[in-house]
């Protein structure tokens, strides 16, 4: 299987991540051919997940399709890179129906477009108008500070770290004083 894939798709290597999990990175235009081939010839009949990873420094998304054999003993990760600007990759719904909801998820969280998916509506967010929240240029803390208000602390609010330090020092000093007093007492008794 490995030799066939290497010859046909001109990839350098197939990584064996675990005994039951292989991974291959291919060009974007070859990925569906590879998935069809795995499905038809090597019994990888289930699409487990479509995942996405945001490589903001290299300016691409890594999209991974995880396929599993019908006996559930082997999995294959098929990965490809797409550009971050106007991110777009064909839908897989015509082959795997369950891809619809996974693609909706990625569309919502990363703003990736999937031409061919008939039902690309929001999944769990409602009326979201900002940057898709899992893109790395989306600053969660900044968003929270701009849009939501926090409760102000109590008047007698104290810094927890400082307070713990102070209390620890106090305890230490008390212990040392107790030890010293004990030693002095024993010295006195020794003297007697």
């Amino acid at each position: 299987m490995f030799a066939t894939i290497k010859n046909r798709f001109a990839t350098t290597d197939i990584e064996v991540k675990r005994e039951d999990l292989y991974k291959v990175v291919v060009q974007r235009d070859a990925i569906f051919e590879l998935i069809f081939m795995l499905r038809e010839q090597y019994d990888y009949q289930t699409l487990n997940a479509i995942t996405c990873c945001d490589w903001i420094e290299e300016e691409h998304f890594a999209i991974t399709y995880i396929l599993t054999t019908s006996d559930r003993k082997q999995s294959f990760m098929v990965q490809t890179m797409i550009g971050r600007e106007d991110a777009q990759i064909d839908s897989l719904t015509h082959t795997f129906e369950q891809a619809e909801i996974m693609e909706r998820d990625l569309h919502e969280m990363y703003g990736i477009d999937f031409p061919g998916n008939q039902n690309l509506v929001e999944l769990s967010l409602e009326n979201w108008v900002h940057t898709p929240p899992l893109r790395r240029e989306f600053d969660t803390l900044e968003f929270v500070n701009n849009n939501l208000s926090f409760r102000e602390g109590r008047d007698g609010n104290m810094d927890v770290k400082k307070e713990m330090k102070r209390l620890r020092a106090l305890k230490k000093a008390q212990k040392a004083a107790a030890k010293k007093a004990k030693e002095e007492a024993s010295e006195v008794s020794d003297g007697n």
Binding site: P133, T140, V144, L148, S149, F150
Partner: peptide, 10 residues
């Protein structure tokens, strides 16, 4: 959830 983009705070 103090820094969650999708959860209200107060």
């Amino acid at each position: 959830y103090w820094d969650s983009y999708n959860t209200i705070k107060r």
